[in-house]
């Protein structure tokens, strides 16, 4: 794959912002099925703030850009989403610290370190019906294809994950309290990650 530039990163984050703001109600509704219906609001709160501060974000490197985003998220977003997404961006920032371009290996590292960070923060493992169930297969798909054109494989993994998690029982986050009753429902975090990934791929294609 080609290396990822600051411009690519900006496009990707903008795609995430768009997805979060367009789906505020939908993501909350998903969370309402067995959770507490705040996921869409929490996510939109964070990305709305990133949007508002867009022009002033630290762009001295891709790493600084990620760290600035991480700070906005932990500062503004409560619930599980603040610490989880904040940690993911923080880990990405540490990997990319002073870089202005990211290699395929860097991206692979970001996946791995972000996943580790989320596990450490919230104690979840793959299979607990959280967004890790999207990120982990996405990371594996990326590793398998990183020397070619990894994006389609990553998108496919994310979309597959949404359906696969349906049959899992939630063991983390608010929805875990319903136990077996969470089986058969979508995990809102997975859906958000998959929707964002798809949009990132589309935007990347358009601008390519």
């Amino acid at each position: 794959m080609n290396s990822v530039t600051m411009e690519d990163v900006e496009l990707a984050v903008r795609a995430m912002i768009d997805v979060a703001l367009e789906n505020e109600a939908y993501f909350s509704d998903l969370d309402g099925v067995v959770g507490d219906a705040d996921f869409g609001v929490s996510l939109a709160t964070g990305f709305r703030e990133i949007d508002a501060k867009w022009d002033t974000l630290d762009r001295t490197s891709i790493g600084h850009f990620f760290l600035a985003i991480s700070q906005i998220i932990t500062g503004k977003v409560g619930g599980c989403s603040g610490p989880i997404w904040g940690t993911a961006f923080m880990r990405a920032g540490i990997v990319a610290r002073d870089k202005s371009e990211l290699s395929a290996d860097d991206i692979g590292q970001i996946f791995e370190r972000a996943i580790d960070g989320i596990k450490a923060r919230g104690g979840a493992e793959e299979g607990d019906k959280t967004l890790l169930d999207a990120l982990c297969p996405m990371s594996r798909a990326f590793e398998a294809e990183k020397n070619g054109e990894p994006l389609p494989a990553v998108v496919a993994a994310a979309e597959q994950a949404v359906e696969d998690t349906r049959n899992l029982e939630a063991r983390r986050g608010r929805q875990s309290f319903t136990g077996e009753r969470s089986i058969g429902t979508l995990d809102p975090g997975c859906v958000a990650v998959a929707t964002m990934t798809k949009r990132i791929a589309e935007t990347a294609k358009q601008s390519a």
């Binding site: 609001v41 500062g75 619930g79 603040g82 904040g86």
Partner: peptide
């Protein structure tokens, strides 16, 4: 206090 049904953020 956080948002309705959402824990307060770390900064709070």
């Amino acid at each position: 206090p956080g948002g309705v049904f959402a824990a307060p953020s770390m900064d709070q």
